[in-house]
Simulated scan of single mutants.
Amino acid sequence: MCLAIPGEIVAIAADGGDLATVEVAGVRRAVNVGLLGADRVAPGDWVLVHVGFAMSKIDEAEAAATLELLRGLGEAYTDELDALSGSDIT
C-alpha cells in the first residue's frame, strides 16, 4: 500500500531549488516541493508527502488528524515510515 503522509517542513534548500527537508514521525528527509507550484512552503508548514514529493500543502489540524488515522492502520503505516527512512532523493 502506498500512502501520502503528513510531514512538517523544517528547512528549505539554500540554493532556492525545489528541495525541502521534511520531518515525518521523527524521520527527516529531503522532498521535492516543486509540484506545489505557486503554493510555496516555509519552515513550519505541513505537506502531504508521497514517494519523495510534496503533493499538497495542508494545515496543522488536518496533519494531526491524518497522522492519528494513519497510526491506526498499524503495519501499513510503519511500512510506509520504513520506506521513507530508507529513501534519498538527493
Rank of each mutant, 00 (worst) to 15 (best):
G86S: 12
E68V: 14
Y77N: 01
L3Y: 12
A38Y: 02
S85L: 07
L35V: 05
G37K: 09
W46K: 01
V24F: 03
G26R: 08
A4N: 13
A25S: 14
D59L: 03
W46R: 01
L48R: 10
D18E: 11
C2E: 08
L48Q: 07
R28P: 00
T21V: 12
M1N: 08
D79K: 10
S56K: 06
A14H: 02
G52N: 04
I12H: 02
S56H: 00
G44V: 07
D15P: 05
H50K: 06
L19M: 12
L84V: 15
V24G: 03
C2R: 09
A11R: 10
D39E: 07
V31P: 01
C2S: 13
D82K: 13
I5T: 12
H50A: 10
I12Y: 00
T21I: 10
E60G: 11
A63M: 07
L19I: 05
S56M: 08
P6M: 03
Y77K: 03
G86Q: 14
V51H: 08
L67C: 11
V51W: 06
T90H: 05
S56A: 13
G74L: 12
D82S: 15
A25P: 01
D15C: 03
T66L: 13
G74R: 12
G7Y: 03
G44A: 06
V22C: 14
A30Q: 13
V41Q: 10
A13S: 12
A61M: 10
G34I: 02
G52C: 05
G26L: 11
A54F: 05
C2Y: 06
L73Y: 14
D82A: 15
V22Q: 00
V22A: 14
M1S: 11
A65M: 15
V10D: 02
T78N: 12
G86N: 12
C2H: 08
A61H: 11
A20W: 04
G26N: 08
E23I: 03
A4T: 03
D82R: 10
L69Q: 12
M1H: 07
L3N: 02
L69A: 14
E62V: 08
L19H: 05
T66V: 04
R71W: 08
M1Y: 06
R28A: 06
G72C: 11
L19N: 09
T78R: 12
A76R: 14
L3D: 08
A13I: 01
V27K: 10
E80P: 09
R40A: 10
G72P: 04
A11G: 01
K57M: 04
L35E: 09
F53M: 02
V33H: 02
D88N: 12
A20L: 02
A76S: 14
L84S: 03
L73K: 13
A76I: 15
T90G: 07
I89D: 09
N32M: 07
I9Y: 03
A30L: 11
A25K: 10
P43F: 08
G86I: 00
N32S: 14
S87D: 10
A38C: 00
V10C: 07
G34K: 00
R29H: 09
A61D: 15
L84P: 02
W46M: 04
I9A: 03
D59N: 14
